[in-house]
């Protein structure tokens, strides 16, 4: 039996130090990937949900959670993945969206629940702020992003897709 020396708040604070492996400027809490922390009699359980079902970063995130908590003495820890409810960009915090923008990635506009808005949006260039942009490719370097180009400053940039 584990004598619980850590409360949920403390564990969440530790988890907030773990960056998203693909977009290191935001952490896994800001991305909305951590669903819950359960403190049980025989250990700690962190419940996460993947952004995309094939997201290759999930393995690394799981390993990072375990090693980071372990280093702080939060043991034993298990990580469980759940699919329900399905992750949505609506769970990204405003802070995370601002960080994405400052990093050069246009943040998601809204939820993908709004099907008509799935595509053909006006995406603002994160570099110069112009709305004169066009879609280069619906799919980008990671599952969560699309490629755009700004017609004002001519720079290509990534857009975090609504999901």
């Amino acid at each position: 039996m584990v004598v619980s020396r850590f409360d949920k708040e403390q564990i969440l604070d530790i988890l907030a130090t773990i960056p998203d492996p693909e977009i290191p400027v935001v952490n896994i809490l800001e991305m909305g990937m951590v669903k819950d922390v359960v403190i049980g009699d025989d250990g700690y359980e962190v419940i996460i949900t993947p952004t995309y079902s094939g997201c290759p970063a999930v393995g690394m995130i799981t390993a990072d959670i375990r090693s980071t908590l372990e280093a702080k003495g939060v043991v034993p820890t298990t990580v469980r993945m759940v699919y329900d409810p399905a992750w949505t960009t609506d769970w990204m915090t405003d802070v995370a969206k601002k960080k994405l923008h400052d990093y050069g990635i246009a943040p998601p506009l809204h939820s993908s629940c709004n099907d008509e808005m799935l595509d053909n949006n006006t995406i603002t260039c994160p570099r110069c702020g112009s709305e004169r942009t066009h879609l280069l490719s619906r799919f980008g370097s990671t599952a969560c992003k699309a490629l755009y180009k700004c017609d004002a400053c001519l720079e290509p940039f990534e857009y975090f897709k609504c999901h």
Partner: peptide
Amino acid sequence: AIAAKTLKEVK
């Protein structure tokens, strides 16, 4: 749960 997740991607 898998279906709800899949549907978003399939769209």
